[in-house]
Simulated assay, not measured.
Amino acid sequence: MRLLRHTTAVLVGLLLAGSVMANEANFGYQENVENPGIFAMVGDLIIARPIGAAITAVGAAAFVVSLPFTALAGNTAEAGQELVVRPGRETFMRCLGCTKTGYGHKQKHDNL
């Protein structure tokens, strides 16, 4: 059972990497538009989003623990940005399978 989980994780990771590399090779699209495939979306949903949510939660806890020190030093905003906002944005503010942050929706191009 353990071997099956590890093998599945490795296969999904390899498929995700191949999908991302193939997506980078689309020279007909604008640079800021992403068009993720099914493997990128599934890998993002199963692997990247849970890891991102965990990193955001750990960052929030670290921010609360470091708050007295960052308040005395005067860099509370920077600590909050790096520990909570940035991981949260990477987790929740991008389309499924996209690699860039922001609500990147699929856009149709009329360059046929």
Rank of each mutant, 00 (worst) to 15 (best):
T7Y: 05
G52P: 04
P50I: 06
E31A: 13
L4C: 07
I55Q: 13
M41V: 06
Y29D: 12
F27I: 14
R94W: 03
N35T: 11
P50E: 07
L16E: 01
V58T: 08
A61Y: 11
D110N: 14
G52V: 04
V20D: 05
G18R: 05
G37Y: 00
G104H: 03
S19A: 15
S66W: 00
T76F: 03
S66H: 00
F92S: 00
L67M: 06
E31M: 11
G97T: 00
I38D: 02
M41L: 07
R5K: 03
E90N: 09
R86N: 13
V65N: 04
R5I: 14
T91C: 09
V20Q: 06
T56M: 10
G13T: 10
L3S: 09
T70V: 14
K108V: 15
H6I: 15
I51N: 13
M21G: 07
L83F: 10
D44C: 13
P87N: 09
L16V: 07
R89E: 13
L15H: 01
I51H: 08
A9Y: 10
Q107A: 13
E31V: 15
L15P: 00
S66Q: 03
H6C: 10
L72G: 08
V10Q: 04
M21W: 13
V85T: 12
F39N: 00
T70G: 03
R5E: 15
E34H: 00
A57R: 02
N32H: 11
G74C: 09
N26R: 10
A53W: 08
A79L: 05
L3R: 05
A40Y: 02
H6A: 14
M93S: 04
E90Q: 11
E24S: 09
A79E: 08
T101L: 00
T91N: 04
I51L: 15
T99C: 05
L15T: 03
G104S: 04
Q30W: 06
P87D: 11
R5W: 12
V65P: 02
V33L: 12
E82S: 10
A62T: 08
Q30M: 09
V12H: 09
F92A: 03
T8K: 08
D44K: 01
N111Y: 15
G97H: 01
A48F: 12
G102L: 02
A53D: 08
I47A: 14
E34G: 01
L3W: 07
T70D: 02
V65L: 12
G102I: 00
E31Q: 09
G59R: 02
N23M: 13
T8A: 15
G13K: 02
A57K: 01
F27C: 10
R89G: 06
F39G: 01
G97V: 01
V20G: 02
T70W: 14
A9K: 15
I51P: 11
R86S: 12
P68L: 03
T101F: 04
V84P: 05
L45T: 05
G52R: 02
Y29Q: 12
C95Q: 04
E78L: 11
N23A: 13
K106G: 07
E24K: 06
V33T: 05
R2G: 11
G59C: 09
F63M: 06
A77H: 07
Q107M: 12
H109E: 12
L11E: 10
F63E: 01
L11N: 10
G37H: 02
R5G: 07
L96W: 00
Q30S: 12
M21A: 14
A54P: 02
F63G: 01
L83T: 03
L112I: 14
S66K: 01
